[in-house]
Design a protein around this nucleic acid. Structure first.
Lengths: 256, 256
DNA sequence: CAATTTCATGCAAATTCGTGCAGAGTCAAG
DNA sequence: CTTGACTCTGCACGAATTTGCATGAAATTG
């Protein structure tokens, strides 16, 4: 095991998990903690991470809001993202909505074949900087800051130019009767437009969104192809969707 | 076994595994480690790989992620960014190019009045998520990954719709005769277009860019209004710009 | 405040590195 | 065919790097 390789490994862990625990890395690589600590010190000196007691953290204290939201249900979301990313096929045009759930899809996208990702979220686009094979199309427009997605006429006109194979939608609420909804009218309009142009639309649903409603309706649930939920939820809560002919994909929360 | 054959073998291993362990190669080829080390040294001298203790790694230190590039000249860049951000006035439309220098401007933008920021870099846009008063316009298009900016016809058509008061351009090289230049043709074209529409264009110039030239010309230096450089540089190196009537703003590197 | 964990430093063992050198092989001129 | 120059390879040896452990300091936890 080369020193450089170890450092890369550490940086990957950091990028994936947002943190590094010295002890855990030492165990995974069957090396002493001293060695890992030394690496961490050197990486910190190179300005690649920030040393903290017990391990290391990313340099930037990240964007506080994002990190907070990210910590809501990271494991469950990661599992959902992984399952959703598996739908992507070579040559596809995939549209990724903004949000932390779709960010997990971006992280989990396959890297062994080529496809195109369109997104109106600068955060998602930035996330894909390091993806080796994905072509990225950025949809511009006025940024709606709360969700960090481009909205408005400018965005709309660009979306009208593409026809995605897959659309992964991020909604703040889903309800069998009230449909998909979110907090902003313009945001809802954009999502609606994308879904209308996409061949298939899927939604990643965490427990806290299921059977809820938000003020602005995006569209009825019958417009979507399927939802990803974590397994082990109340079966009854999912029945209405199955009845409506919506694919309900239950995802095991993988071990960490 | 010819020397060249051995070298090819080593490069294949490197390509396949992303690393080369000198000892392992020596065993596979039934040669002494010295020979392999010699090859590695020569290959490193040819710039085909990077020598590390125990073997070799690919040239690119992984993907030079933003974090690495950020650490190049952080203090100097931060000072330049701060000075540049001071030009922004209430109600302005400011265009921020992609790059680490302009990212520093984004961080230093005033927060006590309103203005609009346009950018074709998702990274910059994401940076502005936490800015309290700036309206953000994202320019979309195909993402040129090396620089993480939107380029192409889609981006061009959106830029044609706006007319910035200020444009902060990020170039990879500036030269009094060869003008501003960068590494990619499309990127250069977009920058040229933005500059043509902007009332004033400024460039943040770090020491390593001054009086250099890159393959793709953006435009002559006479098209720009001014450059920001760190103070204490060779006065002679700046004279040509002053002679051409370009404002040269020297910035003291502030304390941390 | 005490127990536990984590950290930094010094140190020794092991590994790897670079250089000098000798032997083997190649090639061309004599 | 012989000789000499040249190159390549492996070995030797001191230098440098890396790793794990021990020690005491520092931080964290209850």
């Amino acid at each position: 095991m080369l020193t450089q390789q170890r450092k890369s490994f550490i940086l990957e862990i950091l990028k994936r998990d947002g943190q590094v625990v010295a002890k855990s890395v030492a165990e995974q690589l069957h090396l002493s903690e001293d060695t890992i600590r030394r690496d961490l010190r050197e990486l910190a000196a190179e300005g690649l991470l920030r040393r903290v007691h017990g391990g290391a953290m990313p340099l930037a204290p990240d964007l506080p809001p994002l990190t907070v939201r990210r910590s809501v249900a990271p494991l469950a979301k990661r599992a959902l993202g992984l399952a959703a990313a598996a739908l992507v096929q070579p040559g596809h045009l995939v549209f990724l909505d903004g949000g932390t759930s779709t960010a997990e899809i971006a992280k989990a996208l396959p890297q062994d074949f080529s496809f195109t990702v369109a997104t109106h979220s600068p955060t998602i686009a930035a996330e894909l900087e390091t993806h080796p094979t994905a072509e990225v199309i950025l949809i511009g427009g006025r940024i709606y800051k709360h969700s960090m997605v481009a909205v408005g006429a400018l965005a709309s006109s660009q979306i009208a130019l593409i026809r995605p194979d897959l659309f992964f939608l991020g909604a703040t609420a889903i309800h069998p009767v009230h449909g998909l909804s979110t907090g902003d009218l313009e945001e809802a309009a954009i999502k609606r437009q994308i879904a209308a142009r996409a061949a298939e639309t899927f939604v990643l649903v965490t427990q806290d969104k299921l059977n809820q409603a938000s003020p602005c309706t995006i569209m009825p649930v019958t417009e979507i192809s399927g939802i990803f939920v974590q397994s082990g939820l109340d079966a009854e809560a999912l029945t209405p969707y199955r009845t409506l002919g919506i694919r309900v994909i239950e995802v095991e929360e993988g071990e960490e």
